[in-house]
Amino acid sequence: MSAPPYSYSYIFKYIIIGDMGVGKSCLLHQFTEKKFMSDCPHTIGVEFGTRIIDVCGQKIKLQIWDTAGQERFRAVTRSYYRGAAGALMVYDTTRRTTYNHLSSWLTDTRNLTNPSTVIFLIGNKSDLKDQRDVAYEEAKQFADENGLMFVEASAKTGDNVEEAFVETAKKIFQCIQDGRLDLNATESGVQHKPSQPGRQTLTDQSPKPSCSC
């Protein structure tokens, strides 16, 4: 019997963070719906999105928590960092202040997640070329210095959006295979669900060590 289309072997928990108005919800919407929401309203508290992707032949369900950017919501969204396997940290390439705040977002992320959490830096709004306020090279250097993955993307055109979400998942999957991410650890942000969609308990079954990607 073939598995139903919604079955998946792993759940990865992601968070999306960054200043308000950088396009966090739009990136999520572009990734889950493949559409650009031009009049995307602000997020109050947290919102949630999900999509199943294929990484190295494994179906992985991404559970993505999209957080509010306004400073006053940070105290209440911090509890959602816990147990994230991936953190997408977003700034707006056309507003330098959003880039300048990255170290504060990074500190929060490092303090509240695991050492194995994959942090991916996204410079959004790359389509607005003539309004650029942060050079690619500068952000790339920041990413390299802090050991972050990095792309410039556009939630509007969809450019590099898929890549950011999927590359993060690949890196997490690699960590599982390398044994750097312990599936049995609580708050690893990863759940293994061998062909049993909807199950909520963690299993102690190890993943198949075969990835060619």
């Binding site: 308000m20 108005g21 009049d39 995307c40 309203p41 602000h42 306004q70």
Partner: peptide, 13 residues
């Protein structure tokens, strides 16, 4: 600037 950004995004309302 925060208010302007939010109001500009409130088109749906």
């Amino acid at each position: 600037s925060q208010v302007v950004l939010d109001v500009n995004r409130a088109i749906r309302r």
